[in-house]
Design a protein around this nucleic acid. Structure first.
Lengths: 204, 204, 204, 204
DNA sequence: GATGAATGAGAGTTCATTCAT
DNA sequence: GATGAATGAACTCTCATTCAT
């Protein structure tokens, strides 16, 4: 569906974003980096917005894929969540530019099409996460004294901020390793019996 | 320390950000909105970065003030946290433009001074939050099976995402009211006995 | 002499001009509308100027044809003029894009070849019209107190402006019907006895 | 109402149009010719359309002025018309670039604001001319067997085409002198007794 | 006949900032 | 304190055209 050049453009675009932030993604930079002229870019994408949409879509598709992978391993909500986020960590580690894109909603505010796309992605991810959490609540794995929607925001928000800190630090720690530890904390926070076991541990 | 004009500039700047996003904050817009010429702006702030720094500082000072208020009421970690964030909700409700600024880190990436300032604010807020949480853990209010740093990220991340959703929705729900409910969820999540009480409730 | 593709290109070009004006005639639009690639256009016409020349020629040939038709019906100058212009009205009605081309001299100013072509057409039409008028003057049908050249400009100018108004109105009246009435006015204006008859009418 | 620079810009714009046609009117050419940078233009006119609007307005105001002058000399419809158009000839002679603008409607087709402005000017001029003609018909100076609207189109169309021919010839004849003769022809064509006198002349 | 890929030249426009007054 | 005028650098995008395949 995507030509080689289109893939290359998206790839270089991601690198540019990673290196200089969203502001660094200009047609000029893109063309220079690829080694073609500026108008040549327009042979492959109608305009800059289409490029951004393609990037967002890349992210959306990746999210769905990771979710489906996590769901495929039908091993209970907790494991699914663990799998889901740790694979996200891996993705981000390998492609740090994606992080910049995800956290750039603010910049897209002026372009309705992009706002639309982002909100689509957000609500899609939200739905996927909520469905796992609800399932976990039914199966007694996840505490059900709290609204699944609230729990989803907490899980997502926690992990987003964690990733952001990693980005902000200039990737000066291992997202996958420290991420694993943090993920454990998040999971034990939403676990039904997490607290109790802890308390017992303390008692002993 | 700030002249009247400087206050006015910051005020209008915040409104511009609220209305059109960070991209809407241009010297031209600023001047037009205030009703003076563009060069006049430079009488009051050396350059645009100084304006952004002033905005960030406004936010930093506000954070410290809210934290001190919360700490003043020496009524236990939980109440402090509750107070801290619900007063943030109020601040954001009254001044929605602040939200846009906080989530615009990505845009500031090119400007080292701004990056510096933001990371200063972030780590300051982090320290404040961690100190409350640690205190709560010592006093037995907050679960201490998890790292205070992790808990801080979870609390902050949860509430950040919640606020962001509010912003993204175009403020179509009451941040203070629904925020209160969400805050309760967050608190019960980090509470030492939160889970247990719930379980008991369920049992009965 | 023209291949099928060449005819198609000219045809689509005329439609484009009709729809979006001369500015809408770009190689890109042309190619898209026909359903071939842009370079493919250059297989059939050396460059854009050749296309414009072909369009102008189409118009020139049409003019000659209409003039010869009008002359063939050897029924006096007045009827010839009437026939000539009413058949032009019909042509324009069926092919409104031609109107846009005729009135676009201004755009062609930069291209000497096109200027040349247009002035050729103009003087050709002029000669044809003057020859009819002169004939009419000799035969006592057309007032001969005025220079035939002047009369030609008046007739042509009147009808051009009329057609232009029709175009400008978005074709919101019938060029053939209202054109017929206008044509009557023009003719009675140049008629030798047109005025007298009227005066008599008034007297009665 | 217009600053010196604005007048200069319009002036240079007119010269550019006169020299290279409407296509020659670019911000770059404008800036180069004036001797300032391109962005400097935007201090004086918000965008290119505003410049074109100013040019059209210049023409509109000039039309009204000439009409009022002609009407001031309350000496009968015929003299008014004669005065009106001969003063237009003078204007065009002194400012040939105006001619290029008037005949460039086709180029403005894409810009609704400009189309609007032009149609405003056209109908304004139309109304003015019709009012003079109607007056002449009532006073017995102008033939009243023909619709005043038709007569207006004929007069205007005749003179437009005449001016266009002058422009197209590269101004190789005197618009004012030959225009005077042509104007006489036009006037005698719409005169009530013009034809009769001619007939008498012929009879004698 | 046709295509995909590319290009030089140029379009209009925006931005933060400076300078003389 | 404030202004009018200006600017360099950059931006997205369009156009007619070419070339290898």
């Amino acid at each position: 569906m995507q030509t080689e050049r289109q893939k290359e453009i998206i790839d270089v675009a991601l690198n540019l974003i990673a290196a200089k932030g969203i502001q660094g993604l200009t047609i000029k930079n893109l063309a220079r980096e690829i080694g073609i002229s500026e108008p040549a870019i327009y042979r492959h994408y109608e305009n800059k917005i289409e490029i951004l949409l393609a990037i967002l879509d890349l992210f959306r598709i990746n999210s769905v894929k990771l979710f489906e992978q996590a769901s495929g391993e039908k091993s209970g909500a907790m494991l699914k969540i663990e799998h889901l986020f740790s694979s996200h960590f891996t993705t981000f580690s390998q492609n740090p530019s994606l992080v910049a894109v995800i956290f750039s909603e603010e910049i897209f505010r002026n372009e309705p099409v992009l706002v639309e796309k982002i909100s689509e992605i957000v609500s899609q991810n939200d739905r996927m996460l909520i469905s796992i959490i609800s399932e976990g609540q039914l199966e007694g794995e996840i505490r059900n004294d709290l609204d699944a929607g609230h729990l989803a925001i907490m899980v997502m928000g926690s992990l987003r901020l964690f990733v952001k800190r990693w980005q902000f630090s200039g990737h000066n720690f291992s997202l996958t390793e420290e991420g694993h530890a943090f993920l454990k904390s998040v999971i034990s926070m939403i676990a039904l019996n997490g607290n109790i076991r802890t308390i017992n541990k303390q008692k002993s």
